[in-house]
Simulated scan of single mutants.
Amino acid sequence: MRARSRGRPCGVPAERETLWPQVVRIFPLYEEYAKNTDRQIPVVLLTPQD
């Protein structure tokens, strides 16, 4: 199923800190990838569009 959505990066560090544990719980490989890179993996929030 496809749905139209608009993405936005987490704008505040506190928001990302709250969401990151949820992201790695859903997809644990992100945590492993984060350990092997110097960059911060972006967290993007999707909002459904009509």
Rank of each mutant, 00 (worst) to 15 (best):
M1C: 10
M1Y: 12
A3N: 08
A3T: 10
R4A: 14
S5P: 03
S5M: 07
R6M: 11
R6A: 14
R6C: 09
R6E: 12
G7A: 11
R8W: 04
R8G: 07
P9N: 07
C10K: 00
C10Y: 01
V12L: 09
V12F: 07
P13Y: 04
P13C: 04
A14V: 10
E15R: 08
E15K: 05
E15M: 12
E15I: 09
E15W: 04
E15L: 15
E15C: 10
R16I: 03
L19F: 10
L19W: 06
L19E: 12
P21E: 00
Q22A: 13
V23S: 04
R25K: 12
R25W: 01
R25T: 11
R25F: 00
R25V: 02
F27Y: 11
F27Q: 10
P28A: 04
P28S: 06
L29K: 10
E32Y: 01
E32K: 02
A34C: 04
A34Y: 00
A34E: 09
A34L: 02
K35D: 07
N36L: 13
N36G: 10
T37G: 02
D38A: 14
D38V: 05
D38S: 14
R39P: 00
I41E: 01
I41M: 06
I41Y: 00
P42E: 06
P42M: 03
V43S: 03
V43N: 03
D50Q: 09
